[in-house]
């Protein structure tokens, strides 16, 4: 404890922390209660009348259900697979090859592209997808999403790969293993926690993506849940709180479950730091 801190200052800090915490906690609390409430407004309150009618109504909307259960899984799953595979291979390569100026190259390229990516590149990305015939396809969305996520993913993965002692691979080399053997038997099992972290991170990002799908997709039956959420708005453009709440609740479940699984299996260790 800092002995120069006066009791008054400490009370102030605690109050401020509580205020900040409740600012972030309230929407989550709303998300936890509102879906089960027959009468929803934008305040958090204990439901007067518990009901599952909201969910029933949501499942009547086949467009929204398809968006959540099919399109979102394809897009997020596809982005997860692509990002995890490419980031693992790329970070392994970047960590293990001797290229002059490699570190500067990696830092500049990766940080630069993760700053510039996304919204600013939307128009060129759209044109690129258009000329490749990838507009209104899930592949297009997956590729663009993966492209945006990869720099940071490689950055995270490289930290994991760098913690593997070189002597593991050198031993395997001396004992006759091919590079493929080494990757499969030694490097990959050891970076698995990193792969899991990156995979989940990619999944969560792609799961919640709105801008890229809405720009690249055309037909309603291809749209992901983030777009389908708007089908629970009235014709006047105001949200139907009960249905939005129920849909949003369903929308968050897979992410929560994945997070819990990874946390349970590996512990969430962002940016490597596996201490042996």
């Amino acid at each position: 404890m800092n002995r120069y801190e006066s009791p008054l200052a400490r009370v102030g800090i605690v109050l401020f922390t509580m205020l900040a915490a409740s600012f972030f906690a309230l929407p989550l609390l709303w998300l936890a209660t509102a879906p089960f409430d027959a009468r929803v407004n934008l305040t958090v309150h204990i439901p007067a009348e518990l009901t599952l009618d909201n969910f029933r109504a949501v499942f009547q909307n086949s467009f929204a259900v398809r968006a959540l259960l099919v399109n979102n899984l394809i897009i997020a799953g596809g982005a997860m697979l692509t990002v995890a595979t490419v980031a693992t291979l790329a970070s392994y390569g970047l960590s293990r090859t001797r290229i002059p100026g490699r570190d500067i190259l990696v830092y500049v390229l990766i940080l630069f592209s993760s700053v510039v990516g996304g919204t600013a590149a939307m128009v060129p990305l759209f044109l690129l997808a258009y000329h490749l015939g990838l507009v209104d396809t899930h592949i297009g969305v997956i590729l663009v999403m993966s492209g945006g996520l990869l720099p940071s993913a490689i950055f995270i993965m490289r930290d994991f790969v760098d913690t593997i002692p070189r002597s593991y691979e050198e031993a395997a080399l001396v004992f006759g293993a091919s590079p493929l053997h080494i990757f499969r038997d030694i490097a990959f099992p050891l970076v698995r926690p990193g792969v899991a972290v990156v995979a989940i991170w990619a999944f969560v990002n792609a799961w919640g993506a709105f801008l890229i799908p809405v720009v690249l997709l055309r037909s309603p039956h291809n749209m992901p849940a983030s777009v389908a959420l708007y089908s629970f708005y009235s014709e006047a453009g105001t949200p139907v709180h009960t249905l939005v709440a129920a849909y949003a609740f369903l929308y968050t479940i897979p992410v929560l479950v994945l997070y819990l699984i990874v946390n349970w299996r590996f512990g969430f260790r962002f940016f490597g730091g596996i201490k042996r």
């Binding site: 002692p165 002597s167 593991y168 050198e170 031993a171 395997a172 001396v174 004992f175 006759g176 293993a177 091919s178 053997h181 038997d185 030694i186 099992p189 050891l190 042996r276």
Partner: peptide
């Protein structure tokens, strides 16, 4: 064959798999 300073035994394999790795390959 080489013996390394840090032994370079693979932490995710048991000794059978570690010692047998040159044969497995």
């Amino acid at each position: 064959a080489m013996v390394f300073q840090d032994y370079a035994l693979y932490p995710h394999m048991n000794l059978m798999d570690n010692i047998g790795y040159p044969l497995k390959v």
